[in-house]
Design a protein around this nucleic acid. Structure first.
Lengths: 199, 199
DNA sequence: CCTACCGATCGGTAGG
DNA sequence: CCTACCGATCGGTAGG
């Protein structure tokens, strides 16, 4: 594992500060100071404060997207895909708390053009979820009527993690996903089928 | 209905701007300009920008608290209380989108003392939820093991509303609550009982 | 509620 | 990566 470049370390520090204090409340001087340099010297590595924000947010969007793409392409059953997608989503948040907090909290601070770029990736991400849920409707394994609404619920529960998850907490990301599924999927999956499985 | 005072209209405008752009990105000059006065004149009505934020966030906390207190004190069944509490929570968000967005998004920008004050009200609010769920466990109407985790899920789904709810959308607040309950409560409520109800 | 202003701090740059 | 600095803008105030 190559030792991280100064540029990468600046991104990590910016993520930490943006997530803790917010983008606008964080100054370029703080980021520089915590990296042991002066604010002017930052500009040897970045070209603007907003570039820093964009790189963090865009990385976050890519992390979510690549996680669900892998799940989508697998040949599991819809219910199993839903389980895996939820696990993957939670893993992305848990493993990159700072970056995903910035992703959810500060993406609206981007310029309009860049906001649209991120919006496109969000749309793509949600389309993957819709497709998984639609598969479940089509093969009868999920008794839901409105996949978009259910997707919204699933992602609401999963996204809110960034408000409360702590690596030092009692539950691992997988255990959290397991509990979500215990309550949510058993409510979503056709109860007749569910009873057969249990019998 | 008395016509709103300038002070009240300043609060409304501040809520709107804080929710749209964030607390730090909103300037005192913008708030003043949108009220038709100069920035210096604002200080005849408020004493600081942070006071403005605190009043918005504290009002939000009180709105949530008084809604659930009413539900807690009713003599309905635990399941019915849960239903009512979720409806009430969603109503608070839907009816005060700007203020609740600021409540969720910007409360960490407050001074430490005031943040603790809000945290205390949040704790109190969550205790009401825990109590309702515990009642449901005690009388056997809810088959859950960890009320705090279930409360977290319920509030995650409900809170995320501030990201996507629009008054002009196809679903009313009550219809949204109904759909949440359709999926969540049917997953939480003991399925044996649920089947009996349906039969 | 306005005029007129303040000290502080912001993101960013030129030149080395 | 530092020195030295810039124009702009910030929240807020004194005096009327």
């Amino acid at each position: 594992m190559a030792r991280p470049s100064q540029r990468e370390q600046i991104l990590v520090e910016a993520s930490r500060l943006f997530s803790k204090k917010g983008y606008h409340a964080t100054t370029i001087r703080e980021i520089a100071q915590n990296r042991g340099i002066l604010s002017g010297s930052l500009y040897a590595h970045i070209s603007s404060k907003e570039d820093l924000l964009f790189e963090i947010v865009d990385d976050g969007a890519d992390a979510f997207l690549s996680a669900i793409t892998a799940v989508s392409q697998s040949d599991r059953s819809p219910i199993e895909k839903l389980r895996m997608a939820l696990c993957a989503h939670i893993q992305v948040i848990a493993q990159r708390m700072d970056a995903t907090t910035v992703f959810f909290h500060e993406w609206e601070a981007l310029s309009e053009e860049r906001r649209h770029l991120i919006q496109t990736k969000r749309d793509e991400y949600e389309a993957h979820w819709n497709a998984i849920l639609q598969e479940g409707i089509d093969d009868g394994s999920m008794c839901i009527t409105d996949p978009k609404f259910v997707r919204l619920m699933l992602l609401s529960v999963a996204n809110w993690l960034y408000h409360w998850y702590r690596p030092s907490g009692p539950l691992s990301p997988d255990e959290i996903a397991e509990r979500f599924i215990q309550i949510l999927v058993n409510g979503i999956e056709d109860t007749a089928k569910e009873r057969d499985h249990r019998a």
